[in-house]
């Protein structure tokens, strides 16, 4: 482990703790504003979408696109993330294997 890695992990832990205990001490009525509530509610999905965007939209690999559809449909129907990840990864591997 490098010093930079240690710093990254410690800072991650620090900001995460702040978000977890913040609600105990903060004047919670500040968060009552409907805009702030909607903003906070949107944030996790926005971060995830921002991570997927460049990877998916920038990919010309048909295996990746097909596997993404498999993941989306699986999780949508079953609500089971582990199953979705497993089937998606398997699809990606299979398409690459057979298209060689």
């Amino acid at each position: 482990m490098t010093w930079l890695e240690l710093w990254a992990v410690l800072l991650m832990a620090g900001v995460t703790y702040l978000t977890r205990i913040g609600g105990i001490f903060l004047p919670v009525d500040r968060l009552q504003s409907p805009f702030v509530q909607r903003f906070l509610a949107n944030l996790p999905a926005a971060v995830l979408a921002a991570l997927i965007g460049p990877k998916l939209l920038g990919s010309s690999d048909s295996a990746v696109w097909l596997a993404a559809v498999v993941v989306a449909v699986t999780v949508w129907r079953s609500r089971n993330t582990l199953l979705g990840v497993a089937l998606g990864t398997a699809t990606c591997a299979a398409v690459r294997y057979f298209s060689h």
């Binding site: 991570l51 989306a72 690459r96």
Partner: peptide, 20 residues
């Protein structure tokens, strides 16, 4: 990459996104 493990990241994010 042969095992599709590079895709596992996208799969994780996509799954969480749909659950959220």
């Amino acid at each position: 990459a042969v095992w599709g493990l590079d895709f596992t990241f996208i799969a994780m994010f996509l799954s969480l996104l749909i659950l959220l």
